[in-house]
């Protein structure tokens, strides 16, 4: 009846990555990297309200700096891949851990954001793919231009299904962030009786602000606040 000792890999590095706590830490760190991107991306995008020249110049600046651009893209791609790979592994572990479910289960004690991470994530991923095809590669864009980001944006959001799905997707993203921002502190081992509630409050505020920021762009296009000068609406 003596306990089964937990078997582990002989390889030090492999052993490190086998632990679920490490897997979760990777999710946290990569999440933080992507959070950094989402922040920068929002600040960049909001320049749309400063007029076409400003945002097109910003875009040109980014594209002129290939090292920076590709460095960022590769970092993000690795982060995204690791984030997803680890999450899939954790999802498998979770499913194996409860083969027989409950007839009735009440999860009302926890936040919606926390309970929907596994669902908001894939939807956001699908949206990101669409978003890249739409505004970065232009594959699914009606009037894509390599240089006129401003026009791409306006034409893109004039299609209301695109605008609405964009708003829904950033809504999910912000829900994801609301749990993710505070959760990563917990995962990495930081929890403090006074600071943790502040972090949670900050996470709510940040995600709400992000939602307002991101959603304002398609809304502005749809309401005509942001429009092309050549267009007459």
């Amino acid at each position: 009846m003596s306990p089964a000792t937990a078997a582990g890999s002989q390889n030090r590095a492999l052993r490190f990555f086998e632990a679920t706590i490490v897997k979760k830490a990777i999710v946290a760190v990569t999440g933080a990297v992507m959070f950094g991107f989402v922040t920068g991306h929002l600040l960049g995008n909001l320049q749309v309200f400063l007029g076409p020249e400003r945002i097109n110049a910003y875009s040109a600046f980014l594209k002129s700096n290939a090292e920076l651009l590709w460095g960022a893209r590769i970092t993000l791609l690795i982060a995204l891949f690791a984030h997803i790979a680890m999450t899939i592994q954790l999802w498998q572990i979770k499913n194996a851990a409860r083969p027989v479910g409950y007839v009735k289960k009440n999860n009302s004690h926890s936040s919606l954001a926390a309970r929907t991470m596994y669902y908001s994530g894939p939807v956001i991923l699908a949206f990101v793919i669409f978003h890249l095809l739409h505004l970065t590669l232009g594959t699914v864009h009606p009037h894509y231009s390599e240089t006129d980001v401003y026009a791409n944006l306006v034409y893109g959001f004039l299609q209301w299904p695109v605008a609405v799905s964009y708003i829904v997707a950033v809504g999910l993203l912000c829900l994801h962030l609301r749990h993710g921002i505070s959760s990563m502190f917990q995962t990495l081992g930081f929890n403090h009786p006074r600071h943790t509630p502040r972090i949670q409050a900050a996470a709510s505020v940040i995600s709400a602000l992000f939602f307002a920021g991101y959603a304002s762009i398609p809304l502005a296009v749809m309401t005509g606040v942001v429009r092309l000068s050549s267009m007459s609406l």
């Binding site: 979770k94 194996a96 851990a97 926890s110 936040s111 926390a114 309970r115 959760s183």
Partner: peptide, 15 residues
């Protein structure tokens, strides 16, 4: 390590 060997799930900070 033992928690994992017992096949408990992982924490996702749900609460």
């Amino acid at each position: 390590a033992q928690v994992k060997a017992e096949q408990f799930g992982n924490c996702t900070n749900i609460g």
